Computed example of a mutant assay.
Amino acid sequence: MTGKKNQFRAQAPGLPVLAGAATMRRPGMSARSRADRSLTCPLPHSLSAPTRARRMTRRLLDRWGLNGDYAASVEVVVSELVTNAVCHARPDIRITWRILSRDGRAHVRVEVADGGPSGDASVCSDRPADEQGRGTLVIDALASDHGTVQCAMGGALHWVEIAVP
Rank of each mutant, 00 (worst) to 15 (best):
R55H: 13
R55V: 14
R55W: 13
M56N: 10
T57F: 00
T57I: 02
R58N: 08
R59G: 06
L60Q: 07
L60G: 05
D62Q: 14
D62G: 14
D62P: 09
R63M: 13
W64Q: 08
G65F: 10
L66R: 10
L66F: 09
L66P: 05
L66M: 12
L66K: 08
N67R: 15
N67G: 15
G68S: 08
G68R: 09
G68D: 07
D69E: 14
D69I: 11
Y70R: 09
Y70F: 12
Y70H: 11
A71K: 00
A71I: 01
A71Q: 00
A71M: 00
A72N: 05
A72Y: 00
A72S: 08
A72H: 01
A72C: 04
S73T: 07
V74R: 00
V74E: 11
E75S: 15
E75Y: 13
V76T: 12
V76N: 08
V76Y: 05
V77Q: 05
V77I: 15
V77D: 06
V78C: 06
V78K: 02
V78A: 05
V78S: 02
V78E: 03
S79T: 11
S79H: 15
S79F: 12
V82S: 04
V82R: 06
V82F: 06
T83D: 12
T83L: 12
N84L: 07
N84P: 05
A85W: 05
A85Q: 06
V86I: 13
V86P: 05
V86C: 11
V86R: 11
C87F: 09
H88Q: 12
H88Y: 15
A89V: 05
A89F: 14
R90V: 10
R90I: 11
P91Y: 04
P91G: 08
D92V: 12
D92S: 13
D92E: 10
I93W: 03
I93E: 04
I93K: 03
I93V: 11
R94H: 03
R94M: 07
I95K: 03
I95N: 02
T96W: 03
T96V: 06
W97D: 00
W97Y: 14
R98K: 09
R98I: 00
L100W: 02
L100T: 07
S101M: 13
S101A: 14
R102Q: 15
R102K: 15
R102Y: 13
D103S: 15
D103R: 14
D103K: 14
D103P: 05
D103L: 10
G104N: 11
R105K: 14
R105I: 08
A106N: 04
A106Q: 00
A106G: 12
H107F: 10
H107K: 01
V108L: 07
V108H: 02
R109V: 11
R109K: 08
V110M: 09
E111A: 06
E111W: 04
E111F: 04
V112Y: 06
V112G: 03
V112D: 07
V112A: 09
V112T: 11
A113T: 15
A113K: 14
A113D: 15
G115L: 07
G115S: 04
G115I: 09
G116K: 00
G116N: 01
G116V: 03
G116D: 02
P117C: 12
S118K: 04
S118A: 10
S118W: 11
